[in-house]
Design a protein around this nucleic acid. Structure first.
Lengths: 332, 332
DNA sequence: CTGAAAGCGCTTACAG
DNA sequence: CTGAAAGCGCTTACAG
């Protein structure tokens, strides 16, 4: 490997001078600069960022601990984080925890030793100990989670309003009997907000029917099973608001397989705008959360924290969208 | 920050000794070890991996340049890479290029400066210059690509056999007139192999009909447009083999929207087993490539290259699967 | 504008 | 078993 020493020797200058031309940090006379540049060109010298990191105490590394990259929302969030990070010279150290607390702890320690300058935690839920540990490193730390139990910086959408609005949208489309399908397994603080949004919309619009079905989890098949088991009750309502797209699609499939037509017999809306929703028939109407932007905004937030700027602490909300597609019927 | 020096001072030993107990690299007397461990415990000292990297010349960093993490196959490959990498103490530095050659080059240089110990390039196609550059760093380098133009290490499935087998499968289900839908935009070496596989299956099974439709690209809407434009010709064949799931789903949707029933009027098979294929109706029969395993095997290959072991150079093939779902009708 | 020197936080011969 | 010293490849006061 060719080092700064070699360049200095070949260009007949001191390593200080080489450093100065590389970094443009101090004035160097044109002739000397040219000589150094020539040697760099000829030798193909490239500075060793590890050595540089050691002395500057800047790693330009950002640790990102994700639950599972296979979820498209996670991948999109990471893309947003990386995109903005790269704009500021930061690189992404990726760690997949698959939800394991032990793994998260291990990676948190690892990232600290690797001198990561900031931390992202993305997943639906994190243990309080993990949150405490993450904060204990005294580096900027941003969360993307569905369960807010501590004073943490996190980016999200206003889930309560989102469910409220989509329920109201169904009302405007003529629906008066709307059921809500809640995620039991992940009974997060955000899930509670969603339920509140649903209930508030029912109340504000003076609808007389309200019913909350509880799904065993956020998986397609669990929703499918629930859907199948309540086929007889489908006549009671004309629309379903679902806590997630996964649930919505499970319900949709179970209805379809049992002779219930969507949206003619019953309308369905989801939450999350996962990619699969565009491929189910009928295409799923859903609430869109801009995951890429969420990641990007998170990174901007982290960079501000590094600079020590005053920033909006705690929750930061981004606008959601209602993706109107084919799974809702206008009853008017 | 607390350093090895602080620990040494507090434990009243030399930093060499502290280093030895941290790394278990040389014998240390029980009493001294205990004393050092106690100080480490009390101070919460954690070694600085950057400093360690500088002297050991090991970064334990693996650079992964991907096209776009939003493609589920990319995300799955990365998961496989990371999983095995972590088993051996390696971390993943993630870089998204979105197919830009300039970006890829920039990241390749970056990864070199960061002392990455190995490189993965995942994307459907790479420019020859990028391949050359990647190989020029003299570090282990593994590709996941659909276009093989150089002597490179890469992992894939046997695409020719895969298409051959799925076409034969259609034959066995009673189909005699099978069309192939090719991806024109990405006319890669692998696409050529696929066409060969199709043609060979036609020939080996003495089918008299063969036709290759060329799609303008690998996108859903381009396939949709093509599908719509050939509605009149659908009577000519009973099954479609598609170069990718994206194409298959586009064709499927265009048929469905134009009154052609799948699989009753015509059967469709895809390639790739993307997540969306399970959500279209009818569920898509397709060829499964084990992306996670592909990534994992790639990482094992890279680790072997590091060790200097003799390894199977060049192409390495993994078994594919035929995911038999609902988009194929048995004509027998 | 330039160079010699110190130092970033570690590991590792070397000597004892 | 232990410590003093050199060195990894850089940056940055400091002096000139």
């Amino acid at each position: 490997m060719i080092t700064i020493k070699d360049v200095a020797r070949l260009a007949e200058v001191s390593i200080s001078t080489v450093s100065r031309v590389i970094n443009d940090s101090k004035p160097v006379s044109p002739e000397v600069r040219k000589r150094v540049l020539k040697v760099i060109e000829e030798t193909g010298y490239k500075p060793n960022d590890v050595a540089r990191s050691l002395v500057t105490r800047r790693s330009y590394l950002i640790g990102v601990i994700v639950s599972n990259l296979a979820n498209s929302y996670v991948a999109d969030t990471v893309r947003g984080i990386e995109e903005i990070g790269k704009m500021y010279g930061y690189d992404i150290l990726l760690c997949s925890s698959y939800g394991s607390k032990e793994t998260q702890e291990k990676y948190l320690q690892l990232l600290d030793r690797k001198q990561a300058e900031g931390l992202f935690l993305v997943g639906s839920i994190f243990d309080e100990e993990i949150i405490k540990l993450a904060k204990s490193f005294n580096k900027p730390c941003v969360f993307f989670t569905r369960d807010i139990r501590e004073e943490i910086n996190h980016i999200t959408i206003d889930c309560k309003s989102a469910i409220y609005e989509v329920t109201k949208y169904l009302f405007e489309e003529g629906h008066r009997k709307i059921a809500y399908f809640s995620d039991f397994e992940n009974r997060t603080t955000v899930e509670n907000e969603k339920v509140e949004g649903y209930l508030k919309a029912i109340e504000d619009n003076e609808m007389e029917y309200s019913k909350i079905y509880v799904v065993g989890g956020n998986k397609h098949n669990e929703a499918y099973d629930l859907g199948k088991s309540i086929i007889d009750e489908v006549k009671d309502f004309t629309a379903c608001v679902c806590s997630s797209d996964e649930i919505a699609i499970g319900i949709l499939d179970s209805f379809l397989d049992n002779g219930i037509n969507v949206p003619d017999d019953v309308s369905i809306v989801g939450f999350g705008n996962i990619r699969e929703g565009k491929f189910v028939r009928p295409e799923l109407t859903t609430i869109g959360e801009p995951y890429y932007d969420v990641g990007a905004v998170g990174m901007r937030m982290l960079i501000k924290m590094k600079k020590g700027d005053k920033i909006q602490q705690g929750r930061m909300e981004l606008p959601f969208t209602i993706e109107k597609r084919k799974s809702v019927k206008n009853l008017n």
